[in-house]
Simulated assay, not measured.
Amino acid sequence: MIRFEHVTKRYADGTAAVDDLSFEVARGELVALVGPSGCGKTTTVKMVNRLVEPTSGRILLDGRDVADADPVELRRGIGYVIQQVGLFPHRTVLENTATVPRLLGVGRARAHARAAELLDLVGLDPRTFGDRYPDQLSGGQRQRVGVARALAADPPVLLMDEPFGAVDPVVREHLQSEFLRLQAQVRKTVLLVTHDLEEAVRLGDRMAVYGHGTIEQLDAPATVLGAPAGPYVARFVGADRALRRLSVTPVEEAHLDRPPVVRLDDPLPRDPDGARAVVLDADGRPYGWLPAAAGTTGRSGSVREHARPMEARVPLGGSLREALSAMLRYDAGWVAVVDPADGGRYLGVLTPERLHGALRRSVGGLTPR
């Protein structure tokens, strides 16, 4: 979808912002560009929509050289989201979101209907927020409007330059989650510039680690963290890169323990060994756990009377980081793993030992370059 062919941007003083850059972004893929300040990330993005012109090389968008396109028309067909958002202060949220369709000649009613649909998609009820002005919104809400506006003309490509960098960490994490949900629905081809390694790991299908005007490694986040291409990349991703892999390593059935299971309305089992059991409800979803001493001599009644609720659970395919977070949040010795495609049916439990083993196998499965 986006292809860089030996692209260089050199300024009059001889400084090369990017130097002989060649890479491709597939249709529907999100590539995160990460690296130190001044390494050429933003220049790379701005050359796609011709806010910066390359000195040499070609950039192809869906097979067409962007240099052959009228810059204004080109930009109207590319979504662009920046840290400062850039909303028009004198226009309402609905009018801001409808800006590009209106410039493309779409009628007011149709453009506003499209804007309302997108505001709803990014989590802003158009009935509540449509008539507000930018200065009546929080920073996170303005960022959402910026994303909605960028999507309003249904562009195939979305360029994002530090889109969530101006908000606090809690809001940023929420915006990232919302964007992942949104991207799963719209599947745009995205170039995302960020200084935040965690953001690149979380959002990117692949991540490009920049040196000084060049890409030192372009790989899936798990590969960059587990098999850095060289000393520079290893230093950049940090000595704790194995821990960062928690975010990109999914929970799999092979990771799970399967302790004894009882049903919530079963009679209390007689277990001379006093083994702890997982308690399921009538639909096979995890309810909690039965203490090891519950079924010993002298106890009677139903499982329900002795069961202890437990909220620590994660979906199959969720990250090891989610699982560890749930264990810590609920001070739990294990986390139940459920099948989200089957109504939350219980599959097994992930223990700290199993989590550690899964992480070690994940890292060990990648050979350093």
Rank of each mutant, 00 (worst) to 15 (best):
K9Q: 12
T15V: 10
D19P: 11
F23Q: 06
G28D: 05
G35C: 09
G35V: 12
G40A: 03
K41Y: 12
M47C: 07
I59N: 00
L61C: 02
D62Q: 10
G63A: 01
A67Y: 08
D68F: 03
R76E: 08
G77L: 07
V81L: 10
T97V: 14
T97L: 12
L104A: 10
R108L: 12
A109M: 07
L118A: 02
R127C: 04
R127P: 11
R132I: 06
R144P: 03
G146F: 14
L151N: 13
D154C: 07
D154M: 06
V157M: 07
P163D: 06
D168A: 00
R172I: 05
F179D: 00
L192P: 13
T194M: 13
H195E: 12
M207D: 08
V209L: 12
H212L: 09
Q217F: 15
L218H: 10
A222Y: 10
V224R: 02
A229L: 13
F236V: 06
G238Q: 13
L243Y: 02
V248Q: 07
V251W: 10
E253M: 14
A254L: 14
H255I: 00
D257T: 09
V261C: 15
D266W: 08
R270I: 13
D283H: 02
P291N: 10
T296Q: 15
T297Y: 04
T297V: 11
S300V: 02
V314N: 04
Y330W: 13
V337R: 01
D339S: 01
G343Q: 11
R345P: 02
L347W: 07
V349Y: 04
E353P: 13
L355M: 01
L359F: 07
R360M: 11
V363E: 10
